[in-house]
């Protein structure tokens, strides 16, 4: 008989036999993958007291078999060795285990053949690995808060508010700064106040630069609103515009030569004020403070004037 044909015939039943769910059936037709013998008792790993599952029911490879059967198999195999080899090979590429029968027909000296027996003499352990569920930890849950249950205080005047209906019952994001508002209210208050304004402080200005900036901005704004202090002159004063008129040219000429008097002038303060006011055409009658106020107002006007800031006096 042609050995090739024999192989073909033998192949088919083996292929089918794999499908059989009964493990024993599969085992009996599948020659001796001894390495997948379940070594249920052998468990050398003792790390941290983890107990490995020891039941042999877990189908790690389809070629499981039991020790007592093995002996019979080996005798059978010897008879059918020629044909079994290739079939066994097909099975083993599926399960992947080592099959000594594959090497039965190697042309070796009896000495080496004797050595080969050592391969099967050692039975490798089937180490059961711990199979541990890594639980699916849920994702973090964001909070969206509770829905308005209309458990809320009513307006003292009994009027209905629309809070929670047309608009969510939450404060607007733009809240007045209580300290600024308080100062504002004080500024505008007609009557005198019992208590002085509380002094606000920012505990950690470096961390709260935003707070600090808005505070400065608010206070600036507040001061801008404050009306400028009015001085009611007891006498009529010339208005600033008139005082800003140019001096006569000969006066300017002589000023160039003698210069304006400075603080070294040998006179007292009152006299000095009188002199300066005289030069600037500011009348000094009775209250010098008023005259000085006019003088400084005039100075301010020059200082803030666009024209004179850019003016470079001829030297």
């Amino acid at each position: 008989m042609d050995p090739g044909k024999v192989k073909l015939l033998q192949n088919q039943p083996y292929d089918e036999s794999v499908e059989v769910s009964d493990a024993e059936e599969v085992v009996s037709t599948n020659p001796t993958p001894r390495m997948s013998k379940p070594q249920s008792g052998i468990e050398e790993e003792e790390d941290g007291g983890v107990e490995y599952p020891r039941d042999g029911s877990v189908p790690q490879a389809s070629g499981m078999m039991y020790e007592d059967e093995e002996e019979d198999e080996e005798t059978n195999e010897e008879e059918e060795s020629e044909e079994e080899q290739d079939n066994g090979g097909i099975q083993q590429t599926l399960t992947g285990g080592y099959d000594p029968n594959e090497y039965e027909n190697l042309q070796v000296s009896p000495e080496i053949r004797e050595l080969f027996k050592h391969i099967s003499r050692y039975t490798p352990q089937n180490i059961n690995l711990d199979c541990r569920l890594i639980p699916f930890v849920p994702e973090y849950i964001p909070a969206i808060g509770d829905i308005d249950a209309f458990i809320k205080v009513t307006r003292p005047d009994g009027a209905g508010d629309r809070l929670g209906l047309t608009v969510l019952d939450e404060p607007s994001t733009k809240q007045s700064d209580p300290h600024v508002l308080d100062l504002q209210l004080r500024t505008h208050a007609k009557q005198s106040l019992e208590k002085p304004a509380p002094v606000h402080n920012i505990k950690n200005p470096e961390a709260e630069s935003k707070t600090l900036d808005s505070w400065i901005e608010n206070i600036k704004e507040l001061h801008r609103q404050k009306p400028a202090t009015n001085v009611h002159y007891t006498r009529n004063m010339p208005d600033i515009e008139t005082l800003m008129q140019e001096w006569p040219s000969d006066f300017v000429e002589s000023l160039k030569e003698v210069g304006l008097p400075n603080a070294e002038l040998d006179c007292n303060l009152e006299e000095f004020v009188d002199i300066m006011c005289g030069l600037l055409d500011i009348p000094v009658r009775g209250n010098r403070i008023h005259s000085l106020h006019v003088l400084f107002s005039l100075f301010m006007e020059f200082k803030n004037s666009q024209h004179f800031t850019n003016y470079i006096p001829p030297t």
Binding site: D161, P171, S172, K174, Q175, S176, P178, D182, Q184, L185
Partner: peptide, 25 residues
């Protein structure tokens, strides 16, 4: 700014901090 905020005005824009300041004042 000339017109100081009123309680009703502050409440209507839900500026409660402003309202509380006004009331305390």
């Amino acid at each position: 700014k000339d017109v100081l905020p009123t309680l009703e005005g502050l409440l209507s824009i839900r500026d409660y901090t402003g309202a509380i300041t006004l009331l305390k004042f």
